[in-house]
Nucleic acid binder design. Structure first.
Lengths: 227, 227
DNA sequence: ACCTGAACACCGTTCAAGT
DNA sequence: ACCTGAACACCGTTCAAGT
């Protein structure tokens, strides 16, 4: 239908508009079928091509997942740089979580997508690290803190999704536990089976933030050159 | 060979000694072939049976993974209860990480194994939650903190393993990044490509511990009934 | 009680060949 | 440049049948 994909209007020709369609179709398939239903074969079906054809556009499923991860976080916005670093990081964390919740099993895609490669992924890393460097963390600490924050959000939504997908999960059967063998566990059965996502997410965010605050305070105390 | 598996000596007959062999074989296979090489078919081969036979012993691969997870953390020891809670949690975290590092891709098994079910898994949860309750955290906070710590260790070793398996990973190509588009990322290229596991693990542990200390202090300040 | 044969319904990926 | 046919080398799981 459009054999050359040329724009006669001289606008810079969109690089691989086909790839964009593939990623959009993959996201739509993810929403319908979940991570386990996302296969090269059914993605090809949805695009009206054969599975083998996908390999002309992407190196393999791994690359597809990276492209999807990059697209999933596309709606994320940069936080106001004039805010305190804690507020910037919390805004990024909340935003990240919302982006993941916006697609079915998105956290599994992110967890499987490997090192950040796409521009949106790189931009997210950039924003987190910028806030940490601005705050006064040294280079190593900024990198460590950045991956801590990233891992926290992905892990949280992974668990959040798992809990939501299996309602009244029988596997979370902490109810019948022997109070003699597992006194703490048995006493916490109610709390273990409940998942109050918002409150729980804020808890972890608060722990990370105040832990980082403490780290920063110690660093500054031992290094009077910092502002 | 041992059709009834009876102990004439009156000792309580070992419940499912066969299951134990299966889990041991699965762990040996994991060590040799990694998580992706751990299939029901090759596990059956190793045991000298057919894949279908495994389903008489376990409900499915998911249950096998749970059993493996339980076995992987079997060497973990309870921390000295007289230690401060911070030291107990740090000991548990280090011990947990070591147990995971002891088997190839063990963190992937733990991440895939779902809610804790086996006795060792339950005991690990029990120990973490006991330390937190002893410290004075309320019930909800203890549960939240417990899963935070657990997730941190698993996520860390997941990343640690990924980094070790792919030496000089070309995917972690932060070197050629444009300093104009990604100034922080480009400036941190060295730190992003290095993975100093011990130091990095301690960093996260310290952030979590001091964040939890702060939380506890705030709680106690607002609740004079606590010791 | 425990195991096998045989199948079902899939996977990701490669590659020569087509247009 | 892009797609297909056909295959390769696998998966997890079920179930009637064997012993």
């Amino acid at each position: 239908m459009n054999p050359h994909n040329l724009h006669p209007s001289g606008a810079k020709s969109a690089p691989s508009l086909d790839l964009e369609q593939i990623v959009q179709a993959a996201l739509a398939l993810l929403d319908e079928a979940g991570f386990d239903g996302l296969t090269m074969r059914s993605l090809a079906d949805r695009l009206g091509i054969k599975a083998a054809s996908l390999y002309w556009h992407v190196r393999g499923k791994q690359e597809l997942l990276s492209l999807m991860a990059n697209e999933i976080i596309a709606p994320m916005r940069a936080p106001d740089r004039s805010l305190p670093w804690q507020a910037q990081l919390e805004a990024l964390g909340r935003d990240y979580r919302q982006a993941l919740l916006h697609h079915h099993d998105a956290a599994r895609v992110l967890a499987a997508s490997g090192a950040p490669t796409g521009p949106n992924m790189l931009r997210l890393s950039e924003l987190v690290l910028r806030a940490l460097l601005d705050a006064g963390f040294d280079r190593k600490d900024a990198v460590y803190a950045g991956s801590l924050i990233n891992d926290y959000v992905v892990m949280f939504v992974l668990e959040e999704t798992r809990r939501a997908e299996v309602p009244a999960e029988p596997a979370y059967g902490f109810a019948g536990l022997s109070p003699d063998e597992y006194p703490s566990l048995a006493g916490l059965a109610d709390e273990l089976m409940t998942f109050e996502a918002e409150e729980r997410f804020r808890f972890g965010a608060e722990i990370l933030t105040s832990g980082l605050e403490r780290r920063l305070a110690k660093r500054k105390a031992s290094d009077p050159l910092q502002s």
